[in-house]
């Protein structure tokens, strides 16, 4: 068995999500190569080469791969696939965008968002917004897999000394092009890998009030999340949404402020180690999963909490 993990990166930094996919690949067993596709991304390949347990790093450095367009990247991965038994990528937005195309080009199925490796062909994955866990056996010769990062501890980023091999092959489908992007800039830790997450819901009432969470987050070194209701109401940016259709987090501490705890939200955070709920409605479903619940008005609690920390 040889596994190929496709690296998640922004052309400068190897994202921690990659290390979770590496960890899943290591549980499958066999040798492990990493593929870095991008533009001017040699530093990413060098970081990838230091990841513990990596045999070699394949570097495809070309403008065609610069913005992770799935039409281009999938052609390359599908061609490399003949040498591999498993293709894995973290189920980030890039992973979800790319991997099903790879699977289709190879005429194989894909197993999405695995949270457990039972054997080289059997995996567990959540279905129905995490309300059931399916154990699935992949029947195709090449297994195409996306990995839920909260299901696997990150593999050690250092300790390896792999060779970096350049790939000259360029796939340019020419059917799509990058126009622009608006990325949120934040000094806070990344939501999906933060140790503490503070999330706000509709109960906050306005975008200004939502900023009350920021001071608390700064004190705790926390990332800020949001419920769908808070995002739809314009209190928070969409990339902060936690839930079935947003990001999946499993921090040590999750503080839910003024959010009810709909099924779709719980899908994104119920694997947190400790959950705190602050809500004035004691019937709110969030209290059914909270380790510590405080039934109170968040506008009184938040300033007190900030002072107490």
């Amino acid at each position: 068995m040889v596994n190929l993990v496709i690296a998640e990166h922004d052309n400068q930094v190897l994202k921690p999500a990659t290390l979770c996919a590496v960890s899943a690949a290591q549980q499958i067993g066999g040798e492990l190569d990493l593929l870095v596709m991008g533009q001017d991304c040699r530093t990413v390949a060098e970081s990838a080469a230091r990841v513990s347990g990596v045999r070699k790093v394949l570097l495809a450095d070309h403008p065609a791969y610069g913005h992770q367009l799935a039409e281009n990247g999938s052609g390359l991965v599908a061609e490399l696939a003949v040498d591999y038994s498993h293709l894995l990528m973290a189920s980030t937005s890039n992973g979800k965008n790319l991997m099903p195309r790879v699977a289709a080009l190879l005429d194989v199925g894909q197993i999405s968002d695995i949270i457990r490796v039972d054997s080289a062909d059997t995996f567990a994955r959540p279905i129905y917004a995490g309300n059931a866990i399916a154990t699935v056996q992949a029947l195709d010769a090449i297994k195409v897999i996306t990995v839920r990062t909260t299901g696997f501890d990150a593999a050690p980023a250092e300790g390896g000394n792999a060779v970096v091999e350049s790939i000259d092959k360029v796939f340019e489908a020419g059917v799509s092009r990058f126009v622009s992007e608006q990325l949120a800039v934040s000094e806070r830790p990344e939501l999906t890998s933060a140790r503490v997450v503070i999330s706000g819901g509709r109960g906050l009432g306005s975008q200004q009030n939502f900023q009350m969470l920021e001071r608390l987050a700064d004190k705790l070194g926390a990332a800020i999340g949001a419920s769908r209701a808070a995002v739809d109401a314009g209190y928070a940016a969409n990339d902060m949404q936690v839930g079935q259709t947003g990001k999946i987090v499993a921090p040590e501490l999750y503080i839910a402020v003024g959010l009810s705890g709909a099924i779709q939200h719980l899908a994104g955070m119920k694997d947190a180690k400790v959950i705190v709920a602050i809500n004035k409605d004691e019937e709110a479903p969030i209290f059914q999963v909270a380790d510590y619940g405080l039934v109170a008005d968040l506008f009184e609690v938040l300033p007190e909490l900030e002072k107490a920390l």
Partner: peptide, 30 residues
């Protein structure tokens, strides 16, 4: 068939914890 569904299980059940009276108790517990 590209995959075979072997089993579907309920996820681990998370029990409701305790209600705290105020912020001081919350911070103390955490």
């Amino acid at each position: 068939a590209h995959s075979k569904l072997l089993k579907v299980e309920p996820p681990p059940v998370r029990q409701a914890g305790v209600k705290v009276a105020d912020v001081a108790e919350l911070v103390d517990k955490l």
